[in-house]
Design a protein around this nucleic acid. Structure first.
Lengths: 358, 358
DNA sequence: TTGAAAGCGCTAACAG
DNA sequence: CTGTTAGCGCTTTCAA
């Protein structure tokens, strides 16, 4: 009866730990011990078990293991896309920091916000993960609170924690850098009509950059011209299109501040097509210092955003959290200007790193 | 006794389906049915259950569900990195194709080859996934065979299947495009000393491109000069460094064929630093047509590689496979030349798309 | 439309 | 050093 009952429901012939145990003439506990190094196993027994594993093509079922042990040896990362150097750097930072830890990294990509409804879990969660790193607003506040309450270690990127929660957040300095870059355009590059290409509305970073852009102008006696501000959505094509339209309309400006390097790239292309010289006619600056930016010509003046470091920092914070160690609830990493050729500096401020050579 | 025994081992206060059932005064089976739509549930019962879920902050445990049902509603993708536009496009193609399917996508990044040893599972596998898409040689042949034998639907990218296996593969045409591009350099750009920057040794694509590069030269009476061939590893910095050294040594060439756009970018920068004009002194061409390539100046002549389409194709093949439908075991997608400015064409072949404007 | 109960594959006391 | 056994949280017959 038992043998029959056991065999009955097996959908296919995948070998289980029980099969291995039977084949090697030991108990499942011993197999488990050997595989997890939980406690010593006689050498002779061990080799019998390995032989069984080989013969039966056994592969441990990680989900069952997780169910039983409540440990997954995996951390999850939720990001909006993988189509940008920025996110790529971030992910590299995370995976590198986790390399010598015991954790694997699983990534879930979602362009839109996700949330737990009617108990339906996210693709990454307590069932397959020991902790989660969440980009921006990709997971709803409610869901974040829910997960926190259930005890899942969480780290947030580029946003503030939801009310009444104590989830650690990693950011970098946006306002200050945007302020300085705008000031650089005004003071060192002699520009007065500076256009701005916004990112996405629900990205706090984009808003902070815009704030810095506005305040720097005000502080230098320039009233920001609303007709010179448009949405580029962090997309190269969209930015290109916007600037094309500006040029077609003959809108006047002597600089463009793109809220990220992608948009700066698109802007430069549109300007060139319109017969404008960069930076002589119109200066262009970006934000992030993506890998290609130094290879453009003119090389792009931008702000170094420590994406990789944010990733490392997030990973380390999560490790500490899972380990029950004390952590910083808010980390803000510094940024700094990278002055190259696309801004047409007349002079370079001493406080700033001049990177002619990289 | 039973109540005690049940409650005893609970590590924390995460609500389970049992808690929900008790709270709503139904059996766990009914909760399960409601959540999965497996069979009808009385309206009044349903709302009691939803209320319980809300109150108890219940989240279903996907791993337990997977264990019991053998279904995960998830497909896995294994890629070498996320730092390139190429991989980014690939992932976009996959996720887009899966968007209206019932499947979520989970990504595992590993720069080195992984394999199953002593029964230790990969982070992505039958335990959390209904099918797997594997980039290049990232999973060992043995492991691939093992997974295939265990019945996990598999799709391979940019490589041949291991012996004796019937795993479908998606590739694109490398040799032909590399041949044509080299021929273009010789015939239309008047170049004779063409250097080559290799990718990674274990990438078949890189080898095929090199073969095309060599054969085109031979067919035009040029003997490939081994001293003009070096490894750039698909990395922009490494390529830059190699070309810097070439220039420092005064090595003579009138063109560089980089096996991908990343390396072409690095090459252009190194040439410019050495005071060479691109393309007047030295032409540079790449492979892939990454997003930034058209934004470089001079805009990069390259080969369009349908990364996104490969992703879509892989996803659709996997869906068909999981659905038991017939599939093509080998798909080779076409590529084509993109002639821009970096090659310094004297004339443009009619057969080729001229992209002055993008 | 609902409940009882037997697993899914594995780990972790506990006992020896 | 090894075996027994009770779960981990959920789905799924089978029966009502």
């Amino acid at each position: 009866m038992t043998a029959e009952a056991n065999g009955r429901a097996r959908a296919n012939d995948r070998a289980t730990i029980e099969d291995v145990a039977r084949y090697a003439n030991v108990s499942t506990a011993t197999v488990s011990r050997l595989l997890n190094g939980t406690s010593a196993v006689a050498e002779e027994t061990a080799s019998r078990i390995y032989e069984a594993i080989e013969q039966l093509h056994y592969v441990a079922h990680a989900a069952a293991r997780g169910l039983a042990s409540q440990k997954h040896h995996t951390i999850g990362v939720i990001v909006p896309d993988t189509s940008s150097y920025f996110v790529a750097s971030l992910l590299r930072g995370i995976t590198e920091a986790l390399l010598d830890s015991q954790y694997d990294t699983l990534i879930f990509v979602t362009p839109t916000q996700v949330s737990i409804q009617s108990g339906r879990p996210l693709p990454l969660g307590e069932h397959n993960t020991d902790g989660l790193i969440v980009f921006n607003q990709l997971v709803s506040d409610d869901t974040l609170r829910l997960l926190e309450r259930r005890g899942l270690p969480l780290v947030l990127l580029f946003r503030e924690p939801p009310d009444e929660s104590h989830i650690p957040c990693i950011n970098f300095e946006n306002y200050q850098a945007a302020y300085e870059l705008t000031e650089h355009l005004i003071v060192n590059c002699g520009r007065r009509r500076i256009a701005f290409l916004r990112g996405l509305a629900n990205f706090p970073d984009s808003q902070w950059r815009e704030n810095g852009y506005r305040q720097a102008q005000l502080d230098h006696g320039i009233t920001p011209d609303e007709s010179l501000i448009a949405v580029g959505g962090f997309r190269v094509q969209l930015a290109e299109q916007v600037v094309q339209e500006w040029m077609a309309e003959g809108r006047e400006m002597d600089a463009i501040f793109a809220a990220d390097d992608n948009m700066a790239m698109g802007a430069i292309k549109a300007l060139r097509q319109a017969g404008k010289s960069v930076p002589d006619d119109i200066a262009v600056v970006g934000f992030n210092d993506d890998l290609p930016s130094r290879y453009l010509s003119p090389a792009l003046t931008t702000v170094y955003a420590p994406a990789e470091e944010v990733g490392r920092s997030a990973a380390n914070t999560l490790l500490a959290l899972m380990d029950g160690q004390p952590i910083h609830e808010a980390i803000v990493l510094p940024t700094h200007l990278i002055i190259r050729q696309s801004c047409g500096s007349l002079s370079v401020p001493q406080s700033v790193s001049l990177s002619a050579n990289d």
